[in-house]
């Protein structure tokens, strides 16, 4: 029983990552909550992990195409037009 409840920090941080994309099983949920309630380091990690996800999502995904630095590429334009003939 103790083993079941005593998650290692490595396992706990794995579950934190898993949770961001997959459903945890009930046992995993309980284990993770128990661990976080006694482990400040993993509690901070969970918070920071969520912040990083938000930043990545914003930076790489949700950003609008018009906001990214614009680069002109004339040779590419020419190349495509010649292929369309």
């Amino acid at each position: 029983m103790m083993n079941f409840l005593m998650l290692s920090c490595k396992k706990a941080t794995e579950l934190i990552e898993k949770k961001s994309l997959f459903k945890l099983t009930l046992a995993e949920k309980v284990q993770l909550r128990m661990h976080i309630s006694v482990c400040d380091a993993c509690k901070d990690f969970e918070k920071q992990s969520g912040m990083l996800d938000t930043a990545i999502r914003y930076h790489y995904v949700k950003r609008d195409a018009s906001e990214v630095p614009q680069t002109e590429n004339k040779p590419l334009k020419k190349k495509i037009i010649s292929k369309l003939k």
Partner: peptide, 19 residues
């Protein structure tokens, strides 16, 4: 499509490069 290349290829390229 050629007109579209003229108009949008730089936008598309910039986006693909960013990604």
């Amino acid at each position: 499509i050629k007109d579209w290349v003229e108009l949008y290829s730089d936008n598309l390229y910039s986006w693909a490069l960013y990604k």
